[in-house]
Write a protein that binds this DNA or RNA. Structure first.
Length: 695
RNA sequence: GGCGCGGUAGCUCAGGUGGUUAGAGCGUUGGAUUCAUAACCCAAAGGUCGGGGGUUCAACUCCCCCCCGCGCUACCA
């Protein structure tokens, strides 16, 4: 592998529209922090960059909802997140924010730089405009009736009821959420980044260049994107919140949040090191690593690198170890449904138990597939691994040393194998030592490869070996006859404890500090970084050294504590169900004249088949009494073609024809939608003649 | 529908250029032990490696088809 002089580590900029939950932590911040701690232990030059992502329409929308300005809105969440990170002990070198002036300048420089190279495309297209407010409406500022499920408050980019992604022009009866008025289409100019022109380069860089070293999920996703063909992407928006486009004819336009956000990494580095930031972003001997969740892969692996490439003389990410998602008690974590374990709430409910959360989240880290956090599992892992194996080992060594040597590290010397027992002790010592060194090497290798689950497992294995060493050598028995041998055993046991204190720093920083305190190691622990360099057990503690008081590292998580948490989630779920409207709201009143415009008839399905390349559409041939016509209906997930044939259906016969997937649909079949989204046919209670009208 | 990733013991996961009885930790059960937070140590039970075909002397590992989970994508008058 290429040798680098320094490392720039970024963790995804969290979006400032809500608090942090354990999914965020497990996905990006904890692995990043673990990795950075590892590099720092080795004495490497590393910067660890993060900050709040504060632009975009969702922010303005959220602010509006809370009745505050975007500024106040992002201030609130920025400080909440910053505090939670700090309280949890994520050790960023800087936690910045994209609303900073430095960031605005940097982002504008990026734009101008690329603009001056003539790389951007300019294009004018029709978008919805609110005439009363005199603003262009971003997708999420437009609501209307969802063409799919008829939900009356679907957003312009997505219907939250049925999950369909939309474009504003698909909405029926669009209206502006700002003024409530019906918006009009008006031309507007935007700038596009020609991703397609970077396709060949991306292919070479990723598909050929990173086949071996990028995680398979990341690589596969990138390859899929590139193979599908890349399109130019719009990088500006009509909005008054964000980084304004630095061009004379661009009033009211800002950079698209996805263009400016990753640049935030660079701005934050500038802020951290005004003089020396460039070497962290432009020196080919710097290694750039992005820690993100899988939702960010395309931006960090495709778009941002292309932008860096276009800007010129920037380095590209050497690796992007994206994680999959974390679920909670079998369900997706959801901010809107409040189905989450919020970081700040965890810290308040479990004071002094940061390591515990780190440990469990790393042990279930969604490195290769989505993982599930359950409180029961949390309790079990803490109690049976952290407490029983790790904490207990440290404690028993401390207690034994105090018991037999008044807390003074026994002399380390060659133990002459003068009898059977000593011989056995020496055998166990050699075995333990060899096993420990294997674990140390495996742990470090795993850390280098971003396999944090495995790395932490090897750490625990060190404690397991320690426990076994004590059980095998039984110093409490030997003490009755051979104190010199006991001294040797405990000297080595303390060596293991010292090495554990070193090794656990990336994973369990609080325990590391705590053990150092117990070992009273401040006078010599500066030499401990040799552990990370030699990649083997070091002689951590000098003989005759006076230890501090023994203290339990962790205590058991009691049933009541986790039951409280489970109950909390259960209550939220119940409240959600209670408060969720069971039936949809009534639509505005209409007149009999409105109704009489509809020509609703009963038809009979003559034939039915699946549409090619669609998993929702069925192509039906319907006898309407008047004619036989083709009707496409999005019911393929609810009815098979076979069961549709011969069925009587209710259809709107005078609806304007509409082409879908190349075929014209002449009418619409009426369906009842159950609360769970299931569609059921509506038809007369007894067979009627095709063509019968409905009124 | 297309594409990507995944589906291995109760749980969390390893593994594999195809080759003797498929591994680990936790959990469970039994034993041993007492320095330790009833912890540690030893041992055992537990898997038709998502399903079905195929290639092969031999497949969990390669090929084909299918099913399930997650994501991206097309589509749902």
């Amino acid at each position: 592998m290429k040798k680098f002089k320094r490392t720039t580590v970024t963790a995804a900029l969290p979006y400032a529209n809500g608090p942090l939950h354990i999914g965020h932590i497990a996905g990006a911040y904890l692995p990043a922090d673990t990795y950075v701690r590892f590099l720092r232990q080795r004495g490497e030059d590393v910067v660890f960059i993060c900050g709040s992502d504060e632009h975009g329409v969702a922010i303005t929308l959220g602010a509006k909802k809370e009745g505050v300005s975007p500024r106040q809105f992002v201030d609130k969440y920025h400080h909440l997140m910053k505090q939670a990170f700090e309280d949890f002990g994520i050790g960023f070198d800087i936690y910045s924010r994209t609303s900073n002036p430095t960031h605005h300048e940097t982002a504008k420089e990026f734009f101008t730089n690329i603009y001056n190279k003539g790389i951007f495309l300019e294009e004018t297209s029709d978008q919805y405009y609110d005439e009363q407010e005199q603003i262009f409406l971003a997708d999420r500022y437009i609501i209307g009736t969802c063409p799919n499920c008829k939900h009356t408050n679907a957003y312009g980019d997505q219907c939250e009821k049925c999950g369909t992604s939309l474009s504003p022009k698909q909405l029926i009866n669009p209206r502006s959420t700002v003024s409530g008025k019906t918006p009009v289409l008006r031309p507007t100019k935007h700038w596009y980044f020609p991703l397609d022109k970077y396709e060949a380069w991306l292919k070479e860089w990723i598909v050929e260049g990173h086949k071996q070293d990028w995680k398979i999920n990341v690589y596969g996703q990138c390859k899929s994107w590139i193979d599908q063909g890349l399109q130019p992407r719009s990088i500006t928006r009509d909005l008054d919140w964000g980084v304004s486009v630095p061009l004379p004819d661009a009033a009211g336009k800002v950079l698209y949040v996805w263009f400016d956000a990753p640049i935030g990494y660079i701005s934050a580095t500038k802020e951290l090191k005004p003089a020396g930031w460039e070497k962290y972003w432009k020196d080919p001997e710097t290694r750039l690593i992005h820690f993100i969740g899988k939702d960010n892969i395309v931006f960090h692996c495709i778009i941002f690198p292309a932008i860096l490439k276009a800007a010129g003389d920037y380095i590209l990410p050497d690796n992007v170890p994206a994680n999959e998602f974390l679920n909670l008690e079998g369900d997706k974590i959801s901010t809107s449904r409040n189905h989450a374990v919020w970081l700040h709430e965890y810290l308040a409910d479990f004071p002094g138990r940061r390591d515990e959360l780190r440990y469990v989240l790393t042990s279930i880290s969604p490195e290769t597939k989505d993982a599930d956090f359950t409180w029961k599992d949390y309790q079990q892992k803490v109690n049976s691994e952290l407490v029983s194996i790790f904490g207990n080992f440290v404690n028993r060594v401390m207690v034994l040393t105090w018991k037999y040597f008044d807390g003074k590290v026994p002399a380390e010397h060659e133990l002459p194998a003068t009898d059977e027992r000593r011989k056995k002790i020496l055998d166990h010592y050699h075995k333990a030592h060899a096993d420990l060194n294997v674990s140390v090497k495996e742990m470090i290798r795993a850390l280098q490869d971003f396999r944090f689950r495995e790395a932490q497992f090897q750490l625990m294995n060190m404690a397991r070996i320690g426990n076994k060493f004590l059980a095998d050598t039984e110093p409490w028995k030997v003490a009755k006859e051979d104190m010199e041998a006991v001294g040797c055993i405990l000297n080595y046991a303390l060596t293991i404890v010292g090495n554990l204190a070193i090794a656990c720093d990336p994973f369990l920083p609080d325990a590391s500090r705590n053990i150092k305190r117990q070992l009273n190691s401040s006078s010599f622990d500066a030499s401990w970084k040799q552990f990370w360099i030699k990649e083997e057990l070091i002689n951590a503690i000098p003989q005759h050294h006076q230890l501090g008081q023994a203290e339990l590292l962790y205590k058991n998580i009691e049933n009541e504590e986790i039951e409280k948490q489970i109950e909390k989630l259960r209550r939220t779920k119940m409240e959600n169900e209670k408060s969720a409207p069971l039936v949809k709201a009534l639509k505005p009143e209409i007149t009999i004249d409105d109704f009489s415009k509809l020509d609703i008839r009963i038809g009979k399905v003559l034939s039915a088949e699946r549409m090619e390349k669609s998993n929702k559409l069925l192509k039906l041939k319907v006898d309407t009494g008047i004619d036989q016509r083709t009707v496409l209906s999005g019911i393929a997930q609810h009815y098979t073609p076979e069961e549709m044939v011969g069925k009587q259906v209710t259809l709107i016969a005078n609806l304007a024809p509409r082409k879908m997937m190349g075929i014209e649909s002449q009418g619409m079949i009426l369906m009842a939608e159950d609360l769970d989204g299931k569609l059921r046919l509506v038809f007369p209670s007894e067979i009627v003649t095709p063509g019968s009208t409905v009124s």
